[in-house]
């Protein structure tokens, strides 16, 4: 057990190191700007006085390294500085929105994960049948479609032609949970479609890989009934790849959420990032990029740790 803890800690340390490097990358990328943030935000028409005022406000005349350390120190405690456009603290602009995004992702994940794993196993068992071929073509189509395509199709059919769900996901704090789930159903469904396809294909590949191993063949040859082969022999070894698949796809959700939020005008952090990019509000861009990257790294880390815990062979690397 001690070995395991050490291994997980080591992996965790490596994840933190990656996050540190990524934060350096995100912060110093802005230094690539011709001129500086103040000039870029205010544009060419600004007077030298206003540019200087913004420099003072953002503390731009100090060395970049000092500003980086302050930014990082603030980011750890949730303080991302002030927005270059509105002058308000960044955390006010994106804090609530991040919670909304997590809600949307969780909503989609709760539907997609059990559904996709079940379908993946079924398709793996029926492999090379007509059902499998059809599922293959359908999932491939879903993966290949841009998120906004799926989103607009759902709007067209479930909101315009059949007015079942609202096309715009406006939220307010006094809504009941049922109302909330109804309003955010279409964005969640879009994410479900994309993620389910990915997850199904990966689950199918993992299970088929497993069913090809000699000990399954052995179990079949000695006359174990098919359902028992799956439940007793295959499933215990399938958990590792399935946990991996789930974590990787949750990480994938994080990127997909940006486009879906824009399509449905959902008040999430992805929408905030896109707005900030068009307004060139760099503190907000940096903060949301860092939050997205941190979530992404965390989920990839969870995939690794899950794999280590469920697969004893990884605990003793040769």
């Amino acid at each position: 057990m001690n070995d395991l803890l050490l291994l997980v800690l080591k992996r965790l340390g490596f994840g933190l190191l990656t996050l540190l490097v990524v934060s350096i990358l995100i912060f110093f990328a802005v230094e690539l700007l011709p001129g500086d943030v103040a000039e870029a935000v205010l544009g060419q028409g600004a007077t030298p006085e206003t540019v200087q005022a913004m420099r003072d406000q953002l503390g731009l005349d100090r060395p970049a390294v000092v500003r980086y350390l302050e930014w990082l120190g603030g980011a750890v405690t949730g303080d991302f500085g002030v927005s270059a456009v509105s002058g308000e603290p960044v955390i006010n602009a994106i804090g609530d929105r991040f919670v909304n995004t997590l809600f949307l992702a969780a909503y989609a994940a709760v539907i997609a994960v059990p559904f996709a794993i079940l379908l993946g196993i079924v398709v793996a068992l029926l492999r090379n049948s007509v059902f499998d071929r059809v599922a293959n073509v359908l999932t491939l189509t879903s993966i290949s479609s841009p998120e906004f395509f799926l989103g607009y199709i759902l709007i067209l059919y479930l909101s315009v032609k059949l007015p079942l769900f609202p096309a715009i996901a406006s939220l307010s704090s006094d809504m009941s949970l049922g109302e909330l789930l109804h309003r955010t159903f279409l964005p969640a469904l879009t994410l479900v479609l994309v993620v389910t396809a990915h997850m199904m294909r990966m689950t199918r590949a993992a299970i088929i890989n497993l069913l090809a191993s000699p000990y399954i063949e052995m179990a079949r040859l000695k006359g174990v009934p098919p359902w028992k082969v799956i439940v007793r022999h295959a499933l215990p070894n399938a958990w590792a790849p399935i946990i991996n698949v789930v974590a990787l796809n949750l990480a994938y959700l994080i990127t997909g959420v940006v486009l879906v939020e824009v399509v449905f005008v959902y008040p999430g952090i992805g929408q905030a990032l896109v707005d900030a990019v068009s307004k060139r509000d760099f503190p907000v861009v940096q903060a949301s990029s860092l939050i997205f990257a941190a979530t992404f790294i965390l989920l990839n880390l969870a995939a690794d740790v899950g794999a280590i815990i469920t697969n004893p062979r990884l605990r003793h690397p040769k």
Binding site: L25, I26, A251, I254, V258, L273, Q286, S289, F296
Partner: peptide, 10 residues
């Protein structure tokens, strides 16, 4: 380790 769309936006 940075989501591609986020990196591209940045």
């Amino acid at each position: 380790s940075i989501p591609s769309l986020i990196f591209a936006l940045l």
